[in-house]
Write a protein that binds this DNA or RNA. Structure first.
Lengths: 213, 213
DNA sequence: AACCACTATTGGCAGAGTGCCAGTAAGCGT
DNA sequence: ACGCTTACTGGCACTCTGCCAATAGTGGTT
């Protein structure tokens, strides 16, 4: 029982390093189970530290969760951006290519993407809502650019693209989660839907301007 | 200070009546603030009862919340069903009429609808997920019927309609929440989007069947 | 009108979880 | 080797939930 000269009881890490490690652990747990059923002590133990340290780094549990979601939400976007950057630079990628790239990224990070957009159903919380909304808005901007609609970037265009975003998320769920669509079928829908609407609906919508109550 | 013959300290209500009352109070609070920040004691006090009673009726806080969301999610659906039932019975309402009815109902229950679709606090809670998913699936079925697609009710049709559901929710947000669209503009989009996709995309999607990896 | 039985309702206790902070010790610089 | 910075621990205080035994409205019965 007499501890005959044990080494250090714990190792001391670089600030950012430890932070990253806890964040990664939290990410794993939060993508597996809902927020409420994951306790801070569980995260701490899984990361091999104490609960106190977790609070030292992230303040509150909620704030740690936000950090995680932010990461989850950004990774696909960044993934696509990188993919686009890696594409032949002679011109901006075509719409079809962008869709394909996006689908590949999402397919790879399946779990992450699913929890990220479901965290969106956490709309009740303001901070959370902002994170997701901003991410979607950024994606919309990207889409507008790829479609070459930058010149006429009206509220109507943004709204329509956001609408397409909702469509895309749902179609992706049909493909990855409910599995009622194959990847190829989902691709056809995603590629075709938006241009069709831009051509046939956008003019009508714009013509209805200022006619509100 | 000596209580000179006070009346009953509390009134005893019918089981369902009290239940309804608590539910209504909870509904008010949950539509105003996120799940985590509303405590059971707050609900109880606002309803003029004790926390114990709340648990007596609903078991757990979560279960009470589910009850509330179920209500919120059903009310628009029921509203539309009633509206359809009230319509001239000579034939099933046309697509445009259904959309108009739906928009009116949602406009009336603005707050309720907005919290309902963004409910789910902990993102991936199973029970919550099921409630919302089932409601959306029911709506999809309704849409399929109105569009007269009952004969060919394939997985592809369901998936496409669900996709449209995502589109519709987002467009409605653009109209009621972010206010980038007028009601009329939103109407044009909602009415036009789905038929267009059914005509132009559905055939392609069906032709791609069985081509998955 | 007094009583009784039924159950809606209360009040408080036990356990879980979060937030916080004062103290402890790892390990780098000198 | 020694001290100084600060990463890290351990435990206390508080809030909140879940539960249950005791209490008291109230309608029905005589």
């Amino acid at each position: 029982m007499t501890e005959t000269k044990t080494g250090p009881r714990w190792s001391r890490l670089e600030h950012d390093e430890r932070r990253e490690q806890i964040l990664a652990t939290a990410r794993t747990l939060f993508t597996q189970r809902p927020y409420g059923s994951v306790s801070t002590i569980e995260i701490a133990e899984a990361a091999g530290v104490t609960r106190g340290l977790l609070h030292h780094y992230f303040g509150t549990k909620r704030s740690l969760y936000l950090e995680v979601v932010k990461e989850l939400v950004d990774s696909p976007v960044l993934g696509v951006l990188n993919a686009i950057a890696a594409a032949p630079v002679d011109e901006t990628p075509r719409w079809e290519d962008s869709v394909a790239m996006w689908m590949d990224v999402v397919e790879t990070n399946r779990e992450a993407w699913l929890t990220a957009i479901s965290a969106g159903e956490t709309g009740s919380d303001r901070a959370m809502h902002d994170i997701l909304d901003e991410a979607r808005e950024r994606t919309a901007t990207q889409v507008i650019t790829v479609l070459g609609l930058d010149e006429k970037r009206t509220p109507e265009v943004r709204a329509l693209v956001r609408g397409f975003g909702g469509f895309a998320e749902e179609i992706t769920r049909e493909w990855l989660q409910r599995r009622r669509l194959t990847k190829e079928q989902a691709r056809v829908l995603l590629v075709g839907a938006l241009p069709g609407m831009v051509d046939k609906l956008l003019p009508d919508v714009v013509s209805k301007r200022r006619r509100s109550a």
